[in-house]
């Protein structure tokens, strides 16, 4: 790879309008692998979308053809006929919505305590938050399941939603890092005016933290939306299924309803993807900032 040279080139040419001709080939050498790589990432996704619009004749055609001979919506109709897709979608929205709400209530509260309230427990608690991030969920999974089962709360949304209201360590840490960047003087001004800590938190801190809160909300949303293990563990009534566990209904003993399955996959992916694209530019920076430091 012409790596270092490429970096060198970036600096050498201003916004890629015209570059000296002799330099083109080596960039070009990198473009081919770039395209191959992007194809690996995007092509499967395109197949999913296109398969969702194919007739069975096109889907079960060997060798496979990328482009359908005939576009059809029958898979979408079949998907919603054979499965309560609408219901799964609603269930998924409910669980996701509540989890995001929980995260947005709890995480900034804890983050505020870990950044702006100067008290002796701050450091130890921060260490606990960090240690919790490293803990494999497998270790707590079984006792937590037993606990919920004793409370008679398996096969309900409680186990999927309650933890978010008690804070997600990773997101607490992310918001805390953001709050650390906000100067104490801004809060002092309000304190001098006699505002209580909670007033300061609500009317000064929270508005200033909006970027971090949006990022945290999007992260929680994408996680809960795609979560598989939680619903797999706790939901056994098909009426309560989320999309993650509901889609398996397209598999039967001997074959798979690939067309309807792919159309359902599109329905499942689009909301998370839409939110991601809306916030992409915005939280790409946040994310890497956390990972680099």
């Amino acid at each position: 790879m012409s790596t270092a040279e490429v970096v060198d080139r970036r600096r050498a040419d201003a916004p890629q309008v015209s570059r000296p001709p002799r330099r083109i080939p080596s960039t070009f050498v990198g473009v081919v692998p770039l395209l191959v790589m992007l194809a690996f990432f995007v092509f499967p996704f395109l197949i999913m979308v296109v398969t969702g619009f194919k007739t069975p004749a096109d889907i079960f055609h060997a060798p496979p053809k990328f482009w359908p001979t005939q576009w059809t919506l029958q898979n979408y109709a079949a998907a919603s006929d054979s499965l309560p897709i609408g219901r799964y979608l609603l269930n998924t929205c409910l669980v996701t919505g509540l989890s995001v709400l929980g995260t947005l209530i709890s995480c900034p509260l804890v983050a505020y305590s870990l950044s702006k309230v100067h008290w002796p427990g701050q450091k130890p608690l921060l260490l606990i938050v960090l240690a919790t991030m490293m803990l494999p969920p497998q270790v707590t999974m079984i006792p937590v399941y037993i606990m919920w089962s004793r409370l008679g709360a398996t096969n309900s949304y409680w186990p999927l939603v309650v933890p978010a209201f008690l804070g997600t360590p990773y997101l607490i840490f992310m918001i805390r890092q953001f709050m650390m960047g906000i100067p104490d003087e801004l809060l002092e001004a309000a304190r001098v005016d006699g505002a209580s800590q909670f007033r300061i938190y609500r009317s000064v801190m929270l508005p200033l933290c909006r970027p971090a809160l949006v990022t945290a909300g999007v992260f929680q949303l994408v996680w809960t939306w795609s979560d598989f293990l939680g619903p797999l563990l706790y939901l056994n009534d098909p009426k309560k299924y989320t999309l993650s566990v509901g889609l398996y209904a397209f598999f039967s003993e001997h074959d798979v309803a690939w067309g309807p399955l792919m159309s359902a996959c599109v329905i499942f992916t689009l909301p998370a993807l839409g939110i991601f694209l809306l916030g992409q530019r915005f939280f790409m920076n946040q994310m890497t900032a956390g990972a680099l430091k």
Partner: peptide, 28 residues
């Protein structure tokens, strides 16, 4: 007072840690 405020703000995580991390760790 600061300690109480700090604890108050951190309360959700402290409860969550006790119920979903500390107790399960020991129980496991």
């Amino acid at each position: 007072r600061n300690s109480l405020v700090g604890l108050g703000f951190a309360a959700p995580f402290i409860v969550g840690f006790a119920v979903f991390i500390a107790y399960p760790l020991v129980a496991s």
